[in-house]
Computed example of a mutant assay.
Amino acid sequence: MHSRAFILTGLAMVAFAGNSLLTRAALRETGIDAASFTSIRLASGALVLWGLVVLRGHGISGSGNWWSALALFGYGAAFSFAYIDLSTGMGALLLFGAVQATMIGYGLWQGERLEPLQWLGFLMAFGGLAGLLMPGLSAPPIASSALMIGAGVAWGIYSLRGRAAGDATRVSSGNFARAVAFALVLSLLMVDQASLDAAGTGYALASGAITSALGYAIWYTALPMIRAVTAATVQLTVPVIAALGGIVLLGEPLTLRLVLAGAAILGGIWLVVLEKQQTAKA
């Protein structure tokens, strides 16, 4: 990987982890409610992506679709509500595990076959997730955990739908714009619980405009420069970066449960991805 690809990839991973940090910080330390955070995040992301498309001289008519937008909204809303109670690292790990499980599960449903080492990795990841959710003093809240897993499934669906959707930035722009409509409906339904302040709004704007919109644009710029196996494995760093950010910036504790479960989940997924690439080369 040459230096430009390395820098872009690193920036994208930090941006993705930043979404967890910004959302957790907003919903723990400011007065903003989760529905308003979601609406502002999606709206600011849509605006920045639209600007990027216009700067590139491309029209946006016909880009994206409502089903993908619904999946994007489902991810964004569940992600926000989950981070009311989940720590940064815990949320990122649950999200990432659910995304990968969804995409691997879809491959199996489509007829893909796992090699023995991949099955070992899959079982490791599943065992790590089960261990993460087992009752105990450091167990995450079950409702918030379910929401984050749902967010991961929604993001996995969104990613699968976007594989052959065309220009990534243009399609993302259209999907974000459509997702805003769903988010506004949610905000209207929860208007009695609406709460805004300057700090929370700032976090939501940064999450949408910078770590979402610009993060995606940077990632899609880097993707053609790196190998598929590199693209898959480098994303394993996102929960780690998020967890470290939560510890350093938000003062969150590092629990033995998170370390052991994280090692099992990320190590298991790494085995699945690596063996898949080796099998494809054979």
Results as ranks from 00 to 15, higher is better:
35 A>Y: 13
248 V>Q: 10
150 G>F: 04
92 A>M: 14
16 F>S: 03
153 V>K: 02
71 A>I: 01
95 L>N: 03
129 L>H: 02
226 I>D: 01
181 A>D: 06
215 G>E: 05
257 R>D: 01
25 A>T: 13
31 G>M: 03
115 E>A: 14
272 V>E: 07
174 G>I: 11
243 A>L: 13
35 A>H: 15
245 G>Q: 05
6 F>T: 04
239 P>T: 10
135 P>M: 09
81 F>V: 05
186 L>I: 13
75 Y>W: 15
137 L>A: 15
6 F>S: 14
216 Y>P: 12
272 V>M: 03
152 G>P: 11
178 R>W: 09
163 R>K: 15
158 Y>Q: 13
247 I>Q: 06
119 W>A: 02
172 S>H: 05
244 L>T: 13
107 G>H: 04
14 V>E: 01
119 W>Y: 14
238 V>Q: 11
224 P>I: 11
125 A>T: 02
190 M>H: 03
113 R>C: 02
106 Y>F: 06
189 L>H: 03
117 L>F: 08
60 I>G: 15
150 G>W: 09
209 A>H: 04
11 L>H: 11
105 G>R: 06
263 A>G: 00
101 A>G: 06
64 G>S: 08
133 L>G: 03
83 Y>L: 15
9 T>D: 06
77 A>G: 00
239 P>A: 06
49 L>H: 00
147 L>N: 12
245 G>F: 06
182 F>V: 00
71 A>V: 00
136 G>A: 09
126 F>M: 10
100 Q>C: 05
209 A>Y: 01
251 G>V: 05
65 N>I: 15
